[in-house]
């Protein structure tokens, strides 16, 4: 037999990580953001515990501002796979009606996502949470450990990270501490799409090009996904053939013009791509080194 292919090697490593974290935790949970990385992570979890069921629930920290297609896809997948899904919406945000238009992207993300995640972990007492982050996404992620310890206040201290050697992960934690585990640490965006193709993993249709109503704001194409989106004077949505490289809250996620209507065309497009994935995310541009700041505060 020839050596493992790079996808086989990555798959083996990710399954090892998933099993190790579950074996060393009491209440594990998988952060499910409905995006392609979550889809791959969920697929790997199915493989890791086969023929048994996935031994943990999924947690969707919802902002109520995701694309409508994402909610449809989420509920369909959860039903198909028979996994438990916990949906958490920060009640304070619901009460105050926090949204990206009136409150700005920074506050919106901090309150719904960062705060919401902390509240959900505390409420359910989850001690280990899987996330789909990859080291290639952003420079500060390149140093993130696979097993990342968070203080009881959910803070990440880049100076106090545990050395990770060989295949030995240390998931031990003191009371109140939690561990974020990133099984896809060593995957790149291209690996993810190649794996989706190889394994035929379902993803949200928004990744594929279609005619969609968009408006252009500050050079970013924003999808008018529902009537909560306030249009500025003189702004009319136009139908353009667009798709998304990354999915988040619809008002904060830029579309790209594309004709890629299936996985193969996406990979082809990516080979020629000249913009990195997170560029479509408005939140990363708030301030230089902003992802690192968010992570220290407890963002995934």
């Amino acid at each position: 037999m020839s050596p493992l292919t790079h996808l086989q090697a990555l798959e083996g490593e990710s399954i090892h990580i998933l099993r190790e974290a579950v074996a060393e935790s009491e209440r594990p949970v998988m952060l499910y953001s409905v995006g392609k990385d979550s889809s791959v992570m969920l697929h790997l979890a199915g493989k890791a515990f086969y023929p048994g069921p996935i031994p943990f629930p999924l947690l969707h920290v919802d902002t109520t501002w995701k694309f409508r297609d994402m909610y449809v896809f989420r509920d369909k997948r959860v039903a198909e796979l028979g996994v438990d899904l916990v949906v958490y919406q920060n009640p304070e945000c619901l009460k105050l009606g926090i949204n990206p238009f009136t409150h700005g992207s920074e506050l919106h993300t901090a309150m719904w996502k960062t705060e919401g995640l902390k509240q959900a972990l505390d409420l359910y007492g989850f001690d280990v949470a899987f996330g789909g982050a990859r080291r290639d996404e952003e420079t500060s992620r390149a140093k993130e450990r696979v097993f990342s310890i968070r203080s009881p206040q959910h803070r990440w201290d880049p100076k106090q990270q545990r050395p990770e050697l060989w295949r030995l992960y240390n998931a031990r934690r003191s009371p109140g501490e939690t561990v974020r585990v990133f099984p896809l640490s060593n995957w790149t965006e291209l690996d993810v799409w190649q794996y989706i193709h190889q394994e035929d993993i379902p993803v949200v249709p928004l990744y594929f090009a279609a005619k969609r109503p968009v408006v252009e704001r500050g050079g970013t194409l924003i999808l008018v996904d529902d009537d909560r989106m306030p249009l500025e004077v003189g702004e009319t949505p136009t139908l353009r053939t667009v798709r998304f490289r990354t999915l988040g809250c619809y008002p904060l996620t830029g579309a790209i013009e594309s004709e890629a209507r299936d996985v193969l065309s996406i990979i082809g497009e990516m080979m020629r791509a000249t913009n990195s994935e997170r560029q479509g995310r408005v939140i990363d541009h708030d301030a230089s080194g902003s992802m690192e700041k968010k992570k220290q505060e407890g963002y995934f």
């Binding site: 080291r135 500060s140 060593n186 080194g289």
Partner: peptide, 22 residues
């Protein structure tokens, strides 16, 4: 290949980072 804001300012890297290419 520079990562964290702190080290970018100091001009040194302070930890192990992992990079990918193909």
């Amino acid at each position: 290949v520079d990562g964290l804001a702190a080290e970018r300012e100091q001009g040194i890297t302070i930890d192990v980072a992992y990079r990918f290419f193909a």
